[in-house]
């Protein structure tokens, strides 16, 4: 057990190192430079560009830049090129904005897809299963940005509530129930949109896992024992079908950072995704690299956690 943990920590550290090198190389070897983004800008005189290059060590060889960058990252001294703000503080602030979207979206995904998937599997081939299947495909196939506009039109014309942004501007004087409902309305659409794809994919996966398990011999044994169908489905089959999902639990984590670039920019939601998008537009390398690094860290932690969870849940695996 401990050797497994130790080994996987070493392995993941090595992976992280390569991720950091590769993302650094991708960004720095790409043609163009942040100082040349806007040659028309009068502020970018040759002297300014030179000072900029000096300040951010752009004249050093690549490996020195790499070391300096990650030194800054780990000591927390890293600043954005655009406005000289500390990057980590900025990310933290945006992260707190994204968090409610992420939590509501994840809750929706996991609470909806399991009942739907299980029901489809139990009544496979029936009306419920077929319509659930079709809707799942529909949701997988619909482009998020298009669906967002359809929903916006629908909500705005039917309920007459504003939904863009985190809250309606200029509501300072309203009573708190109003403020609260306003927040809820603003939160609802983007999180539903963020969850749709997840619900569709996850419910399909639950269904196929369930079908796989329902065909196993031990399900027949359970029925031959005289168990009621509910006990057969929800105890014997579900328990086995759930095993793989324990590992998926760890894979939620990366969603924290990746956020949704598209949805956040449609809804003008000042979250992580939008920040990353703006950073890409401005070629703000420190932010891009930091976001990338943090999300790689989350992916690795996520896989680690899911490996551990699987070890704990499946009695067949012993180290």
């Amino acid at each position: 057990m401990f050797s497994f943990i130790g080994r996987s920590i070493i392995q993941k550290t090595v992976t992280l190192f390569f991720v950091s090198v590769i993302s650094f190389l991708i960004i720095h070897l790409a043609p163009g430079e942040p100082s040349q983004v806007d040659p028309m800008n009068p502020k970018f005189t040759p002297e300014m560009v030179e000072r900029f290059r000096q300040e951010f060590h752009l004249n050093e060889p690549l490996y020195t830049q790499y070391l300096l960058f990650y030194q800054d990252l780990f000591t927390g001294k890293i600043v954005s090129w655009k406005d000289n703000q500390p990057v980590l503080a900025k990310i933290w602030e945006r992260f707190l904005n994204s968090l409610p979207l992420f939590i509501v979206g994840t809750l929706l995904t996991w609470t909806l897809s399991f009942p739907v998937g299980i029901r489809s599997a139990i009544f496979r081939g029936g009306i419920y299963d077929r319509s659930a299947t079709f809707f799942a495909y529909l949701l997988i196939s619909i482009p998020g940005f298009f669906f967002a506009y359809v929903l916006i039109i629908f909500v705005v014309t039917v309920f007459h509530v504003p939904v863009i942004g985190m809250e309606t501007f200029g509501m300072g004087a309203a009573s708190w129930p109003h403020l609260f409902m306003d927040r809820v309305w603003h939160l609802l659409l983007p999180s539903v949109l963020g969850a749709t794809g997840g619900i569709a994919v996850l419910s399909r996966y639950v269904r196929s896992q369930m079908l796989e398990v329902e065909g196993q011999d031990y399900v027949r044994t359970a029925r031959a024992k005289g168990l009621a169908p509910d006990q057969v489905h929800y105890k014997h089959a579900l328990r086995n079908a759930l095993l793989p999902f324990v590992t998926m639990f760890g894979l939620i984590l990366p969603g924290l950072i990746g956020g949704s670039v598209i949805i956040e920019s449609i809804f003008s939601w000042p979250g992580m995704g939008r920040m990353a998008y703006e950073a890409i537009l401005a070629r703000d390398y420190p932010i891009i690299l930091t976001v990338n690094f943090l999300s790689a860290v989350l992916v690795l932690i996520g896989t680690f956690v899911s490996d551990l969870l699987y070890l704990m849940v499946d009695p067949r695996i012993r180290l």
């Binding site: 992280l16 991720v19 960004i27 950072i257 990338n292």
Partner: peptide, 14 residues
């Protein structure tokens, strides 16, 4: 490990 849409976006933008 790379967030795929973000990576694609970055590279395409650069």
């Amino acid at each position: 490990c790379f967030p795929s849409f973000f990576l694609i976006l970055t590279v395409v933008a650069l």
